[in-house]
Design a protein around this nucleic acid. Structure first.
Lengths: 230, 230
DNA sequence: CCGCAATGTGACAAAGCCGTCACATTCGCA
DNA sequence: TGCGAATGTGACGGCTTTGTCACATTGCGG
């Protein structure tokens, strides 16, 4: 049972070097030599991690990373960017886009393998207690438990999922279609269902003083406010 | 509400530069100029992140990092290591010890601030996908989803919780009392209930080929085997 | 101001979940 | 080998969850 690394890199020599070292370190290796192809492979194959060169023909590394992070299916895949030493500005830009790490060319293969392992380890370890806590609200995924100012809120499975999605993406408006896909797992949504509305209502009922924070964005969907209102 | 950065660095010029830029970026800054002092401050003050130079008088950066990661109170504090360009081997060593990132001197202050932010964001953001995966079994806490060899297993909320507890503690026998406490949240257990047995049965029914792995330990409880049986 | 679309609210009923019971089977010990 | 405790299995029914409907209310644009 091996982890899969996707290499997105246009220089054949660099590809061979990377592939050799990663395979020797017991990774399965996929390769794409253009950004477009890399993105397609990432979407199809869901590798465990992507090593992404910045300088690519066509769609460049930044664009690939941005597209991956903006796509539900691939946003969770960690990305290590390869940059040339003469591109200090590009490193900053990569971090801003959401890359998980970067490695400067030329690099030692050993260092890269260690980087891959470190990023995967970070990404994969199940935290003992998966708690998000802010503004008096606490969500504990290990215990499937929500609390408001220390008092436990009894949520059903669906309500808890809905709450988690809202909290993760607080400040962003989520359409009903998005919620149906991400909370209910529907692939094709029935656009005239009121299911989401009903569950939002129930969630609001249970949130008490916090319910005003679950805002309606008319014509678009719902949003959990990023900041507590004054 | 500002994050606290601890700088452990012996060069006064570097300290001033770091402090200035971090304070301008709205961080609270603590400073220690030796490794020993840095470790003591980390233990007392529990900063949000530590920027740690490798070359320090007395206890060096590696030793400080190792001590932090080996101490329950400070192991969760992310560490960014500062290395000189002439020390490529030290970078690998830092990563092996458990440093979260490193920055090579000389560095742009802007890049360092972005690095601090990126590491804190990673450290603090609820992971997008909280997945445990082994032996063909995948538990995704973000989606409340279990899969066996890629096929989705439909588990109820209770079954999923039970499965998570078994998987987290695989190899260990869990008494019925423990499971009632940890899965059901009972404070005082009714010792003659068959609730756990029933749910284990249901979980086994759904696990198919994997069910043999959920073993009965007669007179004690249940155990999810650590290794797949041959 | 009016009309219409969007959203909130009260309520219903089907389906599912859960804990329990009764009986069957297995295991371990004398 | 026999017995009793421990565990497995089939089934039941009460309660909860869920999605839907009908009507009420709100917000926005003409």
């Amino acid at each position: 049972m091996q982890d899969t690394v996707l290499i997105v890199e246009d220089e054949p020599d660099a590809v061979d070097l990377l592939r050799y070292n990663l395979e020797r370190a017991d990774f399965d290796v996929l390769v794409a030599m253009t950004g477009d192809r890399g993105l397609a492979v990432a979407r199809e194959s869901r590798p465990d991690i992507v090593i992404l060169d910045l300088m690519l023909p066509g769609m460049d590394g930044h664009e690939v990373c941005r597209a991956m992070k903006g796509d539900t299916g691939t946003e969770a895949i960690p990305v290590i960017m390869l940059t040339a030493r003469s591109e200090p500005g590009q490193r900053v830009k990569g971090l801003e886009i959401g890359a998980d790490d970067y490695v400067t060319k030329p690099f030692s293969p050993r260092e890269l393998v260690l980087r891959v392992r470190a990023v995967l380890r970070r990404h994969r370890t199940m935290p003992r207690s998966e708690i998000v806590s802010f503004d008096g609200l606490t969500l504990d995924r290990t215990k499937f438990e929500a609390r408001l100012d220390g008092e436990r809120i009894e949520l059903t499975a669906t309500e808890f999922k809905l709450m988690c999605v809202f909290v993760e993406r607080r400040g962003r408006t989520l359409t009903r279609e998005t919620l149906l896909r991400d909370v209910w797992g529907y692939q094709t949504s029935t656009l005239d269902t009121r299911t989401v509305d009903t569950h939002v209502r129930r969630l609001r009922d249970k949130l008490g003083t916090c319910s005003a924070r679950l805002e309606t964005v008319r014509g678009e969907g719902y949003r959990f406010a990023a900041e507590a209102s004054p």
